[in-house]
């Protein structure tokens, strides 16, 4: 089965460039502004859009994304509304891949089968669930594959050659390499180390490898895009959003533009990379 993710990476491969992948939290700072931001991202140059599913206890996230989740929850965001957001986005965009990223509990409580059906109908293409390692594949990974959704796994510096095959076995869409041991928002790894790690992963899989955690500037995005099939930027975009809010944490007239402008300059960085890693 081919998803929008597979199609997009095949196109990029043909164009000889890497993907610019964005992450923002669904419903941050409120559902309407969040939809406007996400709608602006493809125009700004995002090739793949990751949308965070807010959770009260994001154990792998740093302060910026924790705060984004809390803003969204405070604005009444729920898993159901996150799916509504995707549905609304899909009205005018049937090609940009959407990946939902978050933690398992809200999905478990919603009901796995019901969630997968609704997510697929809404136009979701893939899932990244931080607290579901391969040891728990029965929970969601295997049902998601059966439902036609990509299950994108995180590989990390602690995922050694012995373990990589297990991590890659049921992974589809792309592999998300977390360049550091740490939480979102921490410092980045350098491009040389990332290049070595990507090469190591590519010895085990034909899937595209995208790299995230700690990429903040167009230059860093360019360097990573040279070393991998995609560069993921989250915290920097979330910070730009947060900075545009008023003292009460509400959206201002500058919010959508602040995020879209940064996304555009990061996209320029990615497009400036000579040629994607093969």
């Amino acid at each position: 089965m081919t998803t929008r993710i597979d199609t997009r990476f095949a196109e990029l491969q043909a164009q000889g460039r890497s993907a610019f992948v964005t992450f923002l939290m669904a419903g941050d700072p409120d559902p309407a502004t969040s939809l406007a931001i996400i709608k602006a991202l493809p125009q700004a140059g995002a090739d793949v859009i990751e949308i965070g599913m807010p959770f009260t206890d994001p154990m792998a996230d740093g302060p910026a994304i924790q705060a984004a989740g809390l803003r969204a929850l405070k604005a009444g965001m729920t898993l159901v509304k996150t799916l509504d957001l995707v549905r609304a986005f899909r009205k005018d965009d049937d090609t940009t891949p959407i990946v939902l990223m978050g933690y398992y509990n809200p999905i478990y409580i919603h009901g796995v089968d019901r969630f997968l059906t609704e997510a697929r109908q809404a136009g979701v293409d893939g899932l990244i669930i931080v607290d579901l390692p391969p040891e728990e594949d029965d929970e969601l990974c295997l049902p998601a594959m059966r439902a036609g959704l990509n299950f994108i796994r995180l590989a990390t510096p602690t995922t050694d050659d012995r373990r990589l095959p297990a991590v890659l076995a049921n992974t589809s869409g792309f592999v998300y390499y977390v360049s550091i041991t740490g939480i979102t928002g921490a410092a980045a790894a350098n491009a040389t180390q990332v290049g070595d790690a990507v090469a190591r992963i590519k010895r085990h899989t034909a899937l595209p490898v995208c790299v995230g955690f700690g990429i903040r500037t167009p230059d860093a995005a360019r360097d990573i895009a040279r070393a991998a099939n995609g560069a993921v930027v989250g915290t920097a975009l979330v910070d730009a959003l947060a900075k545009s809010l008023d003292s009460e944490g509400r959206a201002t007239t500058g919010t959508v533009k602040a995020v879209a402008d940064l996304a555009a300059s990061l996209a320029q960085g990615v497009r400036g990379a000579a040629r994607a890693a093969e």
Partner: peptide
């Protein structure tokens, strides 16, 4: 029970 943790922690 189970092991619902981030991949970084799994090897450890």
């Amino acid at each position: 029970g189970g092991r619902f943790v981030a991949e970084t922690l799994m090897p450890l």
